[in-house]
Write a protein that binds this DNA or RNA. Structure first.
Length: 497
RNA sequence: GCCAAGGUGGCAGAGUCUGGCCUUACGCGGCGGCCUGCAGAGCCGCUAUACGCCGGUUCAAAUCCGGCCCUUGGCUCCA
């Protein structure tokens, strides 16, 4: 069974064949760091992460790069803005650094595999200038009043990713560029000068305090004078620098297909003469109230807030319960469902793990549980290989969870080999591939809190044994008030935070 | 206007490429039962018999073809 992926370029599911299976080149179009990451970003991250993990599970070696765009008008607009403690930064780089810290911290909190490198625009300006020069020399780009534009009419395949015909692309880029361009659809590779005050003002928020007046942003010396890189060029320069001319997989949000990714293809393929990416995968968008969740609309929930409120595993469950290439909508009910789903999966895993650790593991029985684990693996694999169908892959784990629970409820003697196979399946596929953390906060080491809770539970057990249920229930209620949830089972009480 | 994605049972969400009992997926919710001192978790059963609308092709369509309606995204910045 081989992996098939939906390639935006062809619009079809294709067999995945990387140039070098030991070195799958994965590039993810990351964020512009002008605000806190929100759930829409998180959703894409979790899917990219799961795809990365699945490729490794299949035995591929993966080289994974995610860019960070740290040169942007919206970043400049936040220079001098008062945050919770001091300003966000006193210049463009400092503001970017603030948000990069939050970005990386948010990513860690979602249990994402780290990329090999997170290249930044400010660290690749020489490569960007080289690339622009090449494009000018080859006749694909031209200088105009200190700025450089890509001439879309020089690239016959322009529009192949988004199915746009040049005649239909009326104009591209902000209005102030129009007069300098040969064709309305041409786009900027290099922009003369800094950011003008009007643009900064436009992105500023009246409700916020700013210390600085109108910063202009950083500029760099170039063959065309002082200026800044255009929006699209950085991805071409950075992906080539770190992964080479032809990527295996290029991922990003669907909102980037046009013009961003279309322009990346034009720049890169014009410069190298090689295909830019073999497979283009696009994550569909995350909506809130029938509208895209986005920083500019202001309708977003920051990642850190959601992680605090719901936890990492429920959030991953939420995102993975829909496929990456369909839209997903935020609602409290949907989050609630994800929490329940996660708890069901975790409960089955924990029950099986506890049974394996119990002293009764001496007597053993045969059952179909081992076969059910095999079936789950097979179904999971089939689903993931079909363009990463995470919802269906999860269904395989839930089927196994049901089998585990039935077995533990029904059988007098347990099938320890089967239970072990089930636990391994949960941990390999749910843990390793889906990124769930079944060990939770236990973390293998008992804290003082754990020991105190155990102590209280011992007392409560004595009260229960003596029939003092009121006292026992009161202890349970008190623990719950402290955030400790107690459950009585056949093997004694268990608790979770 | 042009391009793209999508409209599935109370909710959520697979299945559509590779037509066929579709699987009444998986799950959440609701109802009943079992278990339990109670609660929770779990188990069993029930509940929904759906596929935007109108035509067509076919022995057979959620799945193929045509038309229409609606939603979302892109063509300023954007995962």
């Amino acid at each position: 069974m081989t992996l098939r992926v939906l390639n935006t370029l062809s619009g079809e599911r294709e067999a995945f064949e990387p140039a070098d299976p030991d070195d799958v080149l994965l590039y993810y179009c990351g964020l512009t760091v002008s605000d806190d990451p929100h759930l829409g970003h998180a959703r894409t991250w979790v899917h990219v992460d799961t795809i990365h993990r699945w490729l490794e599970h299949l035995g591929y070696g993966v080289r994974h790069v995610e860019n960070i765009t740290d040169v942007n008008e919206k970043i400049v607009a936040r220079v001098g803005e008062r945050g919770d403690d001091g300003t966000l930064g006193d210049d463009e780089r400092e503001v970017a650094a603030t948000f990069i810290d939050r970005l990386l911290s948010d990513m860690r909190s979602l249990n994402l595999r780290r990329a090999e490198v997170y290249p930044r625009v400010t660290e690749h300006v020489p490569e960007i200038i080289d690339l622009v020069e090449t494009l000018v020399e080859e006749g694909y780009a031209y200088e105009s009043d200190g700025s450089v534009y890509f001439d879309v009419t020089e690239f016959p395949e322009y529009g192949k990713l988004s199915n746009q015909r040049l005649d239909d692309v009326e104009a591209q880029g902000p209005a102030d560029e129009r007069a300098e361009k040969r064709n309305a659809a041409d786009f900027a590779l290099w922009k003369a000068g800094g950011v003008d005050a009007a643009a900064v003002e436009e992105h500023r928020d009246d409700d916020r305090d700013y210390e600085a007046g109108s910063p202009t942003g950083e500029t760099w010396e170039s063959p065309w004078g002082e200026g800044r890189p255009g929006w699209h060029i950085e991805c071409s320069a950075m992906s080539t620098t770190h992964l080479g001319e032809t990527l295996d997989i290029h991922m990003g949000g669907r909102d980037l297909v046009f013009p961003h990714h279309e322009n990346e293809i034009a720049q890169s393929e014009a410069a190298t003469g090689e295909p830019f990416a073999r497979y283009w995968l696009h994550a569909d968008l995350f909506e809130m109230d029938d509208e895209k969740m986005s920083s500019s609309l202001g309708n977003f929930i920051p990642v850190h807030e959601a992680v605090d409120r719901f936890g990492t595993d429920p959030l991953r469950m939420f995102f993975l319960s829909a496929s990456y290439n369909s839209t997903q909508t935020y609602s409290d009910a949907a989050i609630e469902e994800a929490i329940e789903r996660w708890e069901r999966l975790e409960t089955a895993h924990d029950r099986a793990t506890d049974a394996l650790a119990s002293p009764d593991a001496r007597t053993t029985a045969d059952s179909a549980l081992g076969d059910r684990a095999d079936e789950a693996r097979e179904a999971f694999t089939g689903a993931m290989n079909d363009d990463f169908n995470t919802r269906e892959a999860l269904a395989a784990l839930f089927d196994l969870a049901g089998a585990v629970n039935s077995h533990l409820d029904d059988a007098d003697a347990h099938d320890y080999r089967g239970l072990r196979a089930a636990v391994e399946t949960f941990e390999d596929l749910g843990g390793g591939v889906m990124g769930f953390d079944f060990d939770g906060d236990a973390d293998g080491r008992a804290t003082l809190a754990d020991e105190l809770v155990e102590l209280v539970l011992e007392v409560r057990e004595e009260e229960r044994a003596a029939g003092n249920y009121e006292r026992a229930d009161a202890l349970r209620d008190d623990l719950e008030a402290l955030g400790v949830e107690v459950q009585d089972t056949d093997d004694g009480p268990t608790y979770s935070l």
